[in-house]
């Protein structure tokens, strides 16, 4: 997985309706923006989704990406984090080979990363860990010598520190949701 030295993190608030992810992904693809990860999920408001996009490009390209995202009808707001302090978190599930001989060593390492063991099998463990992108990379590197059998990462979820509250959480939302006029085939 490519490492982002100074990741540009975008938080994008969108209508929560079918097809929005397609529109965002289509935009990113056709404009040739390289992305490291994209996560999407619901927010505290019905009808409002939140995406975290980690962009793998230089600053002018990121500005272009932001300007294009802001043209999508379904996008309420784009926040560009990284200009101020922020929290970025990634979650990993990693299944590591851990026979009886090395199991304690793996467990010790997991502890160093404040990772938790969520499944134990005869010859392997599944470890869960949440943290910054760097921390997760380091955990994965530490586990690699034991043999990684399976690995899944969520991609980054990010939020600004302090009191930068996005205005999207107060903006009016579509008249209808669900299979409303905006319903799209994904």
């Amino acid at each position: 997985m490519p490492h982002v030295p100074a990741p540009h993190v975008l938080v994008v608030y969108t209508d929560d309706e079918p097809g929005v992810l397609t529109r965002v992904a289509s935009l990113i693809r056709r404009r040739g923006f390289n992305i490291h990860s994209l996560t999407v999920g619901p927010t505290e408001r019905t009808g409002l989704s939140r995406m975290t996009i980690v962009v793998d490009s230089d600053a002018p390209t990121v500005r272009q990406a932001v300007a294009h995202l802001r043209k999508l009808v379904n996008v309420l707001e784009v926040q560009q984090l990284g200009e101020g302090p922020m929290v970025v978190r990634d979650l990993v599930l990693v299944r590591v080979t851990a026979g009886p001989k090395v199991r304690s060593e793996v467990l010790q390492l997991a502890q160093v990363f404040r990772a938790t063991v969520v499944d134990i099998a005869e010859d392997s463990l599944v470890i869960e860990c949440t943290g910054s992108l760097d921390k997760i990379d380091a955990l994965v590197d530490a586990m690699r010598p034991f043999g990684i059998l399976e690995l899944g990462r969520t991609g980054a979820v990010a939020m600004a520190r302090g009191t930068r509250i996005p205005s999207a959480t107060r903006a009016p939302l579509p008249l209808r949701t669900g299979s409303g006029p905006e319903a799209m085939s994904v």
């Binding site: 999508l72 905006e182 319903a183």
Partner: peptide, 12 residues
């Protein structure tokens, strides 16, 4: 610029 798939009369 945008498009719609409308599946109900009330959404037209």
């Amino acid at each position: 610029k945008h498009n719609y798939l409308v599946t109900r009369a009330e959404d037209i």
